[in-house]
Write a protein that binds this DNA or RNA. Sequence first.
DNA 1: AATGAATGAGCTTTCATTCAT
DNA 2: CATGAATGAAAGCTCATTCAT
Lengths: 203, 203, 203, 203
Amino acid sequence: MAVPTDRRLTQRGEERRRQLVDYATARFAENGFHPTSVAEIVEGLGVGKGVFYWYFDSKEELLRAILSDAQHDLRRTQRDAIADAGSPTERIERGIRASIEWSIEHRDYFRLFQFAATDGRFSSNLRTGEQVAVRDAARHLAEAMAAGEIAAGDPELLSHAILGVHTHLVHLVHRGLLDPTPAELDAAVSFCLYGLLGPRTKG
Amino acid sequence: MAVPTDRRLTQRGEERRRQLVDYATARFAENGFHPTSVAEIVEGLGVGKGVFYWYFDSKEELLRAILSDAQHDLRRTQRDAIADAGSPTERIERGIRASIEWSIEHRDYFRLFQFAATDGRFSSNLRTGEQVAVRDAARHLAEAMAAGEIAAGDPELLSHAILGVHTHLVHLVHRGLLDPTPAELDAAVSFCLYGLLGPRTKG
Amino acid sequence: MAVPTDRRLTQRGEERRRQLVDYATARFAENGFHPTSVAEIVEGLGVGKGVFYWYFDSKEELLRAILSDAQHDLRRTQRDAIADAGSPTERIERGIRASIEWSIEHRDYFRLFQFAATDGRFSSNLRTGEQVAVRDAARHLAEAMAAGEIAAGDPELLSHAILGVHTHLVHLVHRGLLDPTPAELDAAVSFCLYGLLGPRTKG
Amino acid sequence: MAVPTDRRLTQRGEERRRQLVDYATARFAENGFHPTSVAEIVEGLGVGKGVFYWYFDSKEELLRAILSDAQHDLRRTQRDAIADAGSPTERIERGIRASIEWSIEHRDYFRLFQFAATDGRFSSNLRTGEQVAVRDAARHLAEAMAAGEIAAGDPELLSHAILGVHTHLVHLVHRGLLDPTPAELDAAVSFCLYGLLGPRTKG
DNA sequence: AATGAATGAGCTTTCATTCAT
DNA sequence: CATGAATGAAAGCTCATTCAT
């Protein structure tokens, strides 16, 4: 029987659901989605198996819910970050910084994004969110180009390039190979920005 | 019983092992490591289940073998690519290009790298290979900095940033979101290179 | 996932567990531990395979549980038998008789003890129980020696010798080579007490 | 295809067969019959699987061959031991001693006897050998009874009782719980002869 | 005689999911 | 809402045995 999407949960129900989501997020991130069993999750919370299937149709659906939560949270953070920025370039810089900071802070979400990207069952769930973010960034880049702030180029491609730098550096931080000090982050942002400025004028 | 590391394989055995590796690589890349069963692999080749365990201790060990093969192949390609390059900058550029091309061509290997990075059981197998590649690139960057070809900075960090751009763009290509035309690749390489040149001199 | 040692079983669960233990005891004793598969056990009870692993971590653990049950039962029987005996010698005799009778009655347990003794994985589980029984008997023997009821000697060694006689004769009974009539049991007990040379001439 | 029982083996073949028997004996005794695989045996000897099935029809048949060898060896030892004994009682004592010493020395054989006794597939192989030994001993006991050397009783039953003492004490020695010093062995033999009550009053 | 390779039934165990209470 | 129990297909893996060479 499918769990109705519009089910009204009592407050206690809301809490239970949250517990499940949070604990599963931690386990999935730590140990992997496939290697983490439903039994492990419910046992970790000390509840029966029925609880799980009261709130979620399947283990897969749970991961999808987690991914969706995470994307919304990231999106909100990005929006807040660029809310009162002046120039397009500033919006870009703030967006990059906010994304990096969020990803460092939400290590579990970040890892689940990484995993979901490698699994055909879930990568489609990422697609939309990524598209939105990339197009948003691309818009700012296009504006910056129009304003002559950065060199001309394919805004979407450049957005993706920035996303690539972001992803990899956050990964480094999580692996303990990079300290997320302001200086290091500056260097990363700088790599992106000065890459955007285009070739040095000769002479 | 463990498969002896020094087992002498006949030519037929060598071929079987290769068949298993190749078919499993394709299935793992296509369908995921966990969702692909040993049964699926041996059935796909029309052999008995025991064959698999004659050549590999476990499914996990097979993936490790694949990852190792892939890393060696990539490494060789990179070395060949920069063999007769003149300047450090040229070595960097050729290295980036060769890596991107290899990753585009070896889609399956690339996907398995991506997956392995998300799974604690395998990420350690990637670590060494990545370290070697990054340090190698960092050396060239350091030389380029010393020669004044690029702006000063942390060579390792910049190597990682380049790796991030590389990874993400290849991912785009595989997802069909980016055509791997020379122009597009140039743009990516250019992003990296001009990022390295540092701030434009004022005036 | 390990079965929690403190899992709360409903009455139904308690019954199932008992069914599994009882049926497995019979099959293990009849057909041997290794040759009896988990599939055979659950099919014999007409339940799904998962049921087995709901109650036991492994086939090995089940055998250990059976052995433990059996040892406690035997121990209790022995204690009851010697409870109101007068002299040390009487305690010894009653203990021997009770052990023999128990072993004859609990043929399956006895056979599993025999098997477990031959397998390094399980012999340690027997050790403690045997030690307790032997030391207990040795205590009575020592007392009997002190009281001048029997000849001096190493009490533990003699306990073991008695245990050996017990074991072998029970084995004979189970094989149908010896009728467990009172007369036969008397002969066995008598052997222990008098040895081959027969009763000491009075006076 | 069955291995012909009358196959003429070259000297090399004879050696190979012996190697297999010896190594398997050690492995079976150490690790158990069921848990020891044919693969383990042939790998331990560094030969191919075919070798095993050239000499033996099956793993089971190999164990039977080992048991048969062992029984013949024990029998021979016993016969030699009592060859030039004077009285029936002396034959009994020497037989007990020889059996104990052989069993201590041939730990692996002893353990395989123990295991075989617990497994319906092999216990029949033991039966004949045991019967022969028991009847032989019983004959001596009967003679001793007739000569008034020992008390009257069921000779076969007493033989078995002695066998039980023997078996258990050897087991103790193998487990390191008893030092096989002459004094200890004397105590065991003495137990058989005098029982718990000790020697009849001298003179 | 001997080898490496192969077989495939069968093993123990796992796990997403369902259900009676 | 929640629980403990149950399901049973399917997973990873083993192993006695056979076979082509």
